[in-house]
Design a protein around this nucleic acid. Sequence first.
RNA 1: UGGUCCAUGGUGUAACGGUAGCACAGCAGAUUUUGGUUCUGUUUGUCAGGGUUCGAAUCCUUGUGGACCAACCA
Length: 559
Amino acid sequence: MSTEKNTPSSPSLNFIEEIIEADLAAGKYQNIVTRFPPEPNGYLHIGHAKSICLNFGLAQKYKGYTNLRYDDTNPVTEETEYVDSILADVQWLGFQPANIYYASDYFEQLYDWALKLVKAGKAYVDFSSPEQIAEMKGTPTEAGKDSPYRNTSVEENLALLERMRAGEFKDGQCTLRAKIDMAAPNMHMRDPIMYRIKHAHHHRTGDKWCIYPMYDWAHGQCDSIENITHSICTLEFIPHRELYDWYIDSLDIYPSHQYEFARLNLSYTVMSKRKLLQLVNEQFVSGWDDPRMPTISGMRRRGYTPESLRDFAQRIGIAKRENMIELSLLEFCIREDLNKIALRRFAVLDPLKVVITNYPEGQTEWLESENNPENPETGTRKLPFGRELFIEQEDFMENPPPKYFRLHPGGMVRLKSAYIIRCDNVEKDADGNITAVHCTYFPESRSGQDTSGLKVQGVIHWLAAEHAKTATVRLYDRLFTVEDPAAEEDFKQCLNPESLRVIENALIEPALAEVSAGDRFQFTRLGYFCVDPDSTAEKPVFNRTVTLKDSWAKVSKKA
RNA sequence: UGGUCCAUGGUGUAACGGUAGCACAGCAGAUUUUGGUUCUGUUUGUCAGGGUUCGAAUCCUUGUGGACCAACCA
């Protein structure tokens, strides 16, 4: 009588893992085989990442393997650009497909099987128009009607199918349909189309074929050919399962099984390829890899790490319930990872000049500052300090509210890794705008050897004017202003006009002068930033991945 | 108005007939040379009504609510 459940060593399983463990325990399989089956008609997004982590993760956990299979059954929407990006994204996420296959690899086999169904009297060629087929299909509440071509003889159907393949018919002139049940409550069972005619160039098979299999006529058999044990897809395919099984049964081939889980929905973004394509085509974003996009390539460019995405996929779980994940969870995952690995650097985005009136003119001191307090092994770097400095506009207020710990007239702050300063007075232009603040510093308060005995509440970052370099900084924010843009009449009406703010002349410390694309840093007190490929030797470009949590913003907003 | 799937704090996700737990978010506090991190504490939940049972989030049933299904898309 042991109570093994709920021990920390046996974390709970999701429903697919339960199915797999039951299958394994029953000896149904020795090992499992899964597949990730994207259609190469767009870039992968964070929802695909959930599926990738699920499929590859399951295979790793249960000692099986995962195939990448491009579901390329529709030549008019599919392109090699997408094929390439998909593999790159899967690998970047940290997974290696056991095999890379294409549904189009199996076109000949599929055709043979179609012949088999025709011979068995289970498929027929239908010359009805798309409108007529839709008409005869009925509705969810009324049965459909049989097509007049439904009882064509096997011999004639065979000849017709061969002529379809041979290219004797025009696009849309006829289709091959499975003969199932026009009165089935499941619409997908009302004589589904197996082949349609498209005289179109296929990215792999070229002009070899002019008939192309529909999703249902391809997917299950591809799974079967590859001996996929657990074919995992999203909820909207539930009604397809009956047909999936019908084809496999009718063909008497390896019985793969389909299981469905709820797709990811993330707040403040859209997740459909169609909508993402619109954003790209209509140039609301710079491309599929625009850092505001929820695509894997966009998130990579934004600075997300593969680890953070895998962690996110793990945390959101797998279930059958429709869900809307809060963006804050994703942000938590990337902050948690970056906090551990990103080196700290100083940058001033919105500069305000500070003159240390009691610091010698022309003098520069090189001070040490930690690279990452979370990981002392990363050591320190040198920061120049001088008489003229820049701080953030935000870090000074002439008339501060209560609890404002930063610089203000008569107040003191610590310049991080440097000295404590006190603000003595401000310099203004004719319009009354503050152009500089004058401070005195306390030489004995130097960081690491402070004997001043002074206590300050605020610590701010800063840059020596003489040594500051410039950079372009792109501040990204959520792409949409509403939680669920897809639920709106027109999702494009909800685009966030402030989703990107570009700062052309941000100031950065010298240690940031030479960086390469993909490098990630924490700009102290500002957030995490990633070097963009647009960077040049003269001027680096930094993308803000995510801000730091800002509890002062909350406090000051409330006041 | 046919069929299918689903329903646990604000958001996700566990509990497999026996104390409703975890994470994120929120709130409060401690620490802090990042108003970051870390640590501590804490508010909030089983859709509703019947039934089975000593005992129901869990099983049955009826409602209610949501999602999906009528592309020659996947």
